Amino acid sequence: MPLATPPAPPIVRNAVTASGLWRAYGSGEAQVVALRDVSVAFASGAFTAIMGPSGSGKSTLMHCLAGLDTTDRGTVNIGDTVLTGLGDKALTKLRRDKIGFIFQQFNLLPTLTAEENILLPASIAGAKADPAWVNRVIATLDLSDRLSHKPTELSGGQQQRVACARALATRPDVVFADEPTGNLDTRSSAEVLGFLRKSVDDFGQTIVMVTHDPSAAAYADRVVFLADGQIVRDLHGPTADSVIDTMRDFENAVPLAGKAA
């Protein structure tokens, strides 16, 4: 009896790929090298956290991946599109169409309602967000009864949930989250992180998050650790304890030669 052909391994598509990234600030003795020949890929439909000590280059890496900062050398791809070297107009269009952002400071417009803030990226693009999709995101984030409220009428956790809904409203290829729970209390942090986890599991969203919090990183599928502008560890299936242990190990072992945000 012939042996059955084993199933082919699943094809992993990368939402973001970086190759040989270098980024330095300043010159001469004052120069700080933020990224040193960093190559890394982030799988589509996965939740990845980026961690490292203060000055490790984690925020610089995310900003380069998202097209918010330039690189000195190396390339960044968003899907099949080469981001590196794009002109301002093309880069703006790429960020608008393919990338969502969640920031620590929420960055909501105070004169707009929650609903208007959520729909703003589509409005700026001259497009109309899919109502069914937006309603699903709003319901998942439990914002249905807060849509007419302005940011000053919302709690910090509610404001960040509005920011999450805004980031996902256009169904971007990838959402970059920069310390999204940094200004939240424990309960609000858990709500936001739970939604990010759910957006990956239920919606197939790709999330890349910079954080300093081991408990936040434990929501991710994978944690990439940086020190001195280089990737020093790649941890899959993280727990808060395993993240703490990893941070302790390499902080003791890797001397930092320079500081970068």
Rank of each mutant, 00 (worst) to 15 (best):
G156A: 05
M247Q: 10
S123C: 03
L91A: 07
R36Q: 15
V200D: 12
L68D: 05
V208R: 15
V174T: 02
Q205Y: 09
L147A: 14
N117S: 06
G100L: 01
N77Y: 01
F225G: 00
G237M: 00
D173P: 00
P121R: 01
L109T: 06
S144V: 10
M209G: 11
S199R: 11
D37C: 02
P2M: 08
L108D: 12
E153K: 08
D241F: 02
T92H: 04
L119W: 07
R197S: 10
K93W: 03
L184R: 13
G100W: 13
H63V: 02
A216Q: 09
L196K: 07
N107R: 13
A127L: 04
L226R: 10
D178T: 03
T17D: 10
T111G: 03
P110Y: 11
D37W: 00
R73Y: 04
K89S: 00
V200Q: 08
H212Y: 14
N14T: 00
L147H: 09
G87K: 07
A169Y: 12
G45W: 07
M51V: 01
T17V: 02
V232S: 05
F103S: 14
L3T: 06
N107P: 09
V134C: 08
S19R: 15
L3S: 06
G204F: 11
G67L: 01
L141C: 12
V33E: 12
V192I: 13
L141M: 13
W22H: 06
F101C: 08
R95L: 02
F203S: 13
F250S: 04
A261F: 15
D130T: 03
Q105A: 15
L21A: 01
N77F: 04
V254L: 10
L120H: 11
I231H: 10
L184N: 10
I50D: 07
G20K: 13
P131M: 00
G67S: 01
I124R: 09
G26T: 05
P121E: 15
K89T: 00
C64E: 06
L35C: 01
T113I: 10
A46D: 06
V208Q: 13
G156Q: 12
V76N: 08
A18I: 00
N135V: 03
R95E: 10
G74Y: 06
A4G: 05
G87W: 00
V162N: 09
N77K: 00
V12K: 08
A41R: 14
I138G: 06
A165P: 09
G156M: 11
S155D: 13
I78K: 03
S189T: 13
R197G: 11
A132K: 12
A8W: 09
V243N: 05
S27W: 01
D173T: 01
L120P: 08
H63D: 04
N135C: 04
L109Q: 11
D37I: 04
G156P: 07
N252L: 15
A30R: 05
G79F: 02
V254Q: 14
K93E: 13
K93Y: 04
A46Q: 09
Q104D: 12
